[in-house]
Design a protein around this nucleic acid. Structure first.
Lengths: 231, 231
DNA sequence: AAAACTAATTGATAATTATCAATTTACAAA
DNA sequence: TTTGTAAATTGATAATTATCAATTAGTTTT
C-alpha cells in the first residue's frame, strides 16, 4: 500500500514556516535564518490505516513528524505475534533513532489515517551544525521518549488486565475533556498491554456494558471518573 | 546513608582525561581542548547497597556516570509497592533527564556497592556550547535509553514468568562469557518483571535445582544454552 | 555462639488469565 | 441487498500466577 504524496517537494523553508502545528514539532524553536538550512525537500504524506511508514532495519534517511493520526511502533516476534512498544500522536517524532545513523528499531505502522511530514536526516544534521536551536528541541524529544517509556512500564505492564486496559483508555483519551479518541482493535490492545486478544475483548465489552466506555465504530469516549475509580 | 566522597574536587580536566573507562562514557569523544571547558568540579562517589543517588523531583543539577556496580531506577507506587523501570551498569548515565532542566523521573538506588562520577549539568551545557563532540555522545545515550526501554517492553514484560526471569538472567549476565553477575533480591526481580516476590523466588529456586543457575550469595552464573532453550 | 531479624523458599488455595472453540456482529465486496 | 470475510464477543476449561501462611536459610547484632 503506497501512501499518497500530498505535495511535491517544495522549497523547504516556505511551508514549514507556515505549518499550523509548528509549535508542537521539532522545528518549533527555529527562527527565520534557521530555515535557510533546510536544503533537502520535506514532503507531506498520508498513510491509510494499516500502512507502513518504515520497517525495522530500513534505510534510515528520514525522521517522521506526525501531523495527525496515530502510529504504532511494533516489534514482530519469532512466533508470529507482535508487541506494540509505543504510540505516536500529533507532534511526536517517529524514527528519531535515525539521527544516530543506527537502523530503525521497530516497524512504524499507521493505526488510522495518518498524516506525516517526512524530514530528511540531512536537514537535521545541517541544522545541528549551523544552529543551536534544534539541539534543544531534540533533547526535549528524547526526554519525552524516555518518560513515556517509563509511564508505559509503570502503568501499562503491571496490575490486573482490567487495570491495564483502564490505564490505556485514560492514556488514549489524553487531556481533552470529552473528546472522542481512536479505540484500537482488541488485538492491538492486547499487543499494547501484553495480554491476549480475548482478554482485551472481554474487558472492553465489560466496560461498555457498565458505561465506562462508549463507542461508535473505532471512536470512543470514556467516563473518566468511573474509570479512575477502578484503578 | 551518606555516600563516601572518594576524592575532593579536582581540576576537572586532569582526572577525566586519564579515566580508565573513558571509552565507555559520555566524554569518550572529547579531545584535549574540550576538557578546558570543564569548569565545575566532577567528583567520584561510592554508594553502598541500598543507598540513594537521587530521588524523584530532587534538584536536578547533576548527571551520574556509573563507573562500576549496579543502579536501579525505581517508581514508588501509591500502594507502597515499587516498580523498577531500568537498570544502569558501567558506562551508563543516570539522571540524563536533568539536561533538559526537568526533574528526575525516578529514584536511583544502588543495588550493590556502586561507584559513580557526579557531573554538574553546567559542565555539559558548556561543552555543548563550545564543542560539537559531546552532542553526538549524548544522542547515542538517548538512543541507548530508548532501545533498552524497548527491549524491556518486548521481552521482560510479556510471556510467562519463567520466560521473563530467563530473559532477565540473560540480560544480567551480559556479554561476558562465564563471568558472575549480581543476582538481585527476589523482591527486586519481582519489581523488575511485574511479578510477585514469591513467583520470582519459585522460579529462581527451580532454575537452581535444574542447574540453569548457580549462585554464591548475591553472585550468580548461568548456563546460557539451557536457559536459551526454554525461551 | 545465641538471639533477633530479614530474605528465601515452599505449600495450599483462590483468583486471574490463556487457550481452544463457537457464535455473533460489523464491514466490504459483489 | 446479499454474500463473504474479518473482528469482536462469549463460553468452557486448563494453566498460570497471586495470595496467604508457614517454614527454612542466611545475616547481623548482642
Amino acid at each position: 500500500m503506497k501512501p499518497a504524496e500530498i505535495n511535491q517537494a517544495w522549497n523547504g523553508a516556505e511551508k514549514c514556516k507556515l505549518c499550523s502545528i509548528r509549535h508542537l514539532v521539532l522545528f518549533a524553536d527555529l527562527n527565520e535564518d534557521d530555515f535557510q538550512h533546510l536544503h533537502h525537500p520535506i514532503k507531506e504524506f498520508e498513510f491509510k490505516t494499516g500502512s507502513t511508514l518504515y520497517k525495522r532495519n530500513d534505510t534510515i534517511d528520514y525522521v517522521y513528524t506526525v501531523r495527525s493520526g496515530l502510529v504504532k511502533l511494533v516489534h514482530y516476534l519469532p512466533n508470529g505475534s507482535y508487541r506494540i512498544t509505543r504510540l505516536l500522536r500529533q507532534g511526536d517524532l517517529a524514527g528519531i533513532e535515525a539521527l544516530n545513523g543506527s537502523a530503525y528499531l521497530q516497524h512504524a505502522i499507521a493505526m488510522r489515517e495518518t498524516s506525516v511530514c517526512k524530514i530528511p536526516v540531512k536537514n537535521i544534521q545541517q541544522l545541528n551544525n549551523e544552529s543551536a536551536q534544534l539541539y534543544k528541541q531534540l533533547t526535549v524529544r528524547w526526554h519525552k521518549v524516555q518518560s513515556e517509556a517509563d509511564i508505559w512500564l509503570t502503568h501499562l505492564t503491571m496490575g490486573s488486565s482490567k487495570h491495564r486496559v483502564a490505564h490505556l483508555l485514560i492514556y488514549l483519551a489524553g487531556d481533552k475533556a470529552n473528546d472522542e479518541f481512536f479505540l484500537p482493535s482488541r488485538e492491538d490492545i492486547g499487543a499494547l498491554l501484553a495480554i491476549t486478544t480475548e482478554t482485551a475483548s472481554r474487558i472492553i465489552a465489560e466496560f461498555k456494558r457498565e458505561g465506562l466506555l462508549k463507542n461508535q465504530k473505532n471512536f470512543a469516549s470514556i467516563d473518566r471518573l468511573k474509570l479512575n475509580s477502578i484503578l
